[in-house]
Design a protein around this nucleic acid. Structure first.
Lengths: 352, 352
DNA sequence: TGTGCTTGCACAATCGATGGTGCATTAACT
DNA sequence: AGTTAATGCACCATCGATTGTGCAAGCACA
């Protein structure tokens, strides 16, 4: 008899059915009833009625009243990337385990979109916002600040809120060193044979490029100025950078430092249609880890950013009392070629 | 003077400031003011006040009143996978272009979690729900139905709502055929040299396995019963399946049909630590496309599911008047080894 | 019987926005 | 001048849940 397109049951419905007042029903259903000295038997009655009528709290109403929603936001630059999607996966686990509801949205690395997205989330009274890889973290900060919303930067730092980021300098140092060592001593690399592709004018890229320069200089004795080919975070721009390089030099360098898995996709586009042999001698270091990339036909040394630790640290910080904004560095890990690491999915069960 | 931790401005604040009633302010701000015959000059006053005070609508309040929230949900099995994250990326574009707010959550392929997640989203009065790859689509349907929520299945079909899915049979047929053809006629493949790994008892796997069997039989003349090694959607279970196979046969098959990129990661785990030469002669077909996997050291033929078309079709269907549930097949595409395709990210701009 | 405490709950305001209804004013027209 | 119509907006109930406050009934105790 309840099978119609009926509206969902509310506390008022249960109030009528149980003979108690709405406030009593509310207290019972949200667990505050002991504090309000509701009789146990009353509570039981209401709870069983709630179950029978499939009551579920209208979280918009609760959110309106409490001006908190139980939503926790994660703002990514993009979804379609293993680094960020792994982060989303880990983030969800954390939020779920706290009994809240994760909301993941992307803002396309567009400062305007970032602010708008934050505004929108704020309009839904989200409780916290984790800002990942924002192009303009401080712009987003303004928006959050004005709304009194707790927030934290991840992956790219801002000046006005805590930031949890990879130790990009150290990661790039390890990576550059590993690339160079890959050539051993007999067949050693010349400074003009190692180039960095990708990167943008953001904190992470700057650190990585600085470490790249310094390490090259330290280990190879020199570092020509044109060793860096910026190409943003876009496969196609990176592809064009490779093509341009090839046009100028007749071939690719023997060794590449690639700034992110997205730029690495630019290398793939360059490889497509070209003979596989062209890349036999190539050695690549990539700042990011992707399991498939690790098994390409040439040595690919990768840096795995410790997103689990970053997310964990961010959750720890976001609830702390306000302090002067600080940057927390999380050490990344150097991954040898042909490594298939476990990821966040390995904690999920699966029935074969 | 407004720089404190002040609360956000409401229509009541603007009402006082403008001397109009809250309902007038509301009408002006939500665009219905012409319909309510508000004077243009009144509207202008209010709009400029709104701007000056950084008014933004409290969407929870609006949602409560209208019993619609402007949120559109996408429920994924997992985030950390190129197929699903590409879907999320595409989905966001669609929702944004409709002026609504995308909400992406994952439910871990757990029927319980799927229902709970749907319940939660419903409690926030989401307007529509796109259910991707659900283990129990009909369970989720019940929940949505009871709440009068429009919803649609993607990737895995349900019996009680429209479904938009890949043409898994045709995709697997093409893939099996391509794997076999890869060996040419001189060095042709024996039926007991081609195995399928991965898959579960879901619609997609069943279709793919059926096509695998049929095509093998048609092209190779026979199809031994043990040609399929189910191993769910888990890298580690797949790894163990490879190990078990190797134990029994002393080596891997010459040719593999791998049911998804997740199972493909199981192959990577198997490769890790084993000599690369072991895989020189291998030919792999993988039902899913990942750009890096496409460039592995052996031929990897992939199937790219047309998620753009699936999402587009789903948006088309979800607004149509109710009809008997139907399944819509979207043709996937066979991708030759060493292909680096464009993805949803290529539509984003990037400043190099 | 009267005082005072505890128990158990109802009442009503509130969160912010929406939209149906109705009432003044002014304009138009006979 | 008187009737009708259009204009411009205010009023108020409503969405569903939360929470501070208050009060009656029951009990203990003097």
């Amino acid at each position: 008899m309840d099978q119609q397109v009926k509206k969902k049951a509310t506390i008022y419905d249960l109030s009528v059915l149980s003979g108690s007042s709405p406030s009593t029903v509310s207290a019972v259903l949200n667990g505050t009833w002991r504090k309000r000295r509701i009789k146990e038997s009353t509570a039981e009655t209401i709870l069983s009625l709630a179950e029978r009528h499939q009551y579920t709290t209208n979280l918009q109403a609760r959110g309106l009243r409490r001006s908190r929603s139980g939503l926790v936001g994660l703002m990514l630059p993009i979804h379609d990337n293993r680094y960020f999607s792994a982060m989303a996966q880990t983030f969800e686990g954390h939020v779920r385990s706290r009994g809240q509801c994760p909301v993941v949205v992307s803002a396309s690395r567009d400062p305007e979109e970032e602010r708008r997205t934050a505004e929108t989330l704020i309009s839904y009274s989200i409780d916290q916002l984790f800002i990942v890889g924002a192009t303009d973290p401080d712009g987003v900060h303004e928006v959050c600040e004005a709304a009194g919303l707790r927030h934290i930067n991840i992956d790219l730092p801002g000046a006005k809120a805590h930031s949890v980021i990879s130790d990009n300098y150290e990661g790039a140092r390890m990576l550059t060193e590993a690339i160079i060592r890959q050539f051993g001593n007999n067949d050693s690399l010349r400074p003009d044979e190692l180039f960095l592709f990708g990167g943008r004018n953001d904190h992470a890229s700057r650190e990585r490029i600085a470490a790249f320069h310094a390490t090259k200089k330290a280990l190879l004795g020199a570092d020509p100025d044109d060793g860096v080919q910026s190409s943003g975070y876009s496969p196609d721009i990176t592809l064009r950078a490779f093509e341009a390089f090839c046009q100028r030099h007749g071939k690719l360098p023997r060794a590449l430092f690639i700034n992110s898995s997205i730029n690495m996709e630019g290398l793939l586009r360059f490889m497509a249609g070209r003979p596989a042999e062209m890349f036999n001698e190539l050695v690549v270091g990539c700042y990011d880890y992707d399991p498939f990339a690790s098994f390409l036909p040439f040595p690919v040394i990768m840096v795995r950013q410790n997103f689990e630790a970053m997310i964990a640290k961010a959750f720890e910080l976001i609830n702390e009392p306000p302090m002067a904004p600080q940057i927390f560095l999380i050490a990344p890990e150097l991954i040898q070629p042909r490594s298939a690491l476990k990821g966040p999915l390995d904690t999920l069960k699966d029935i074969a």
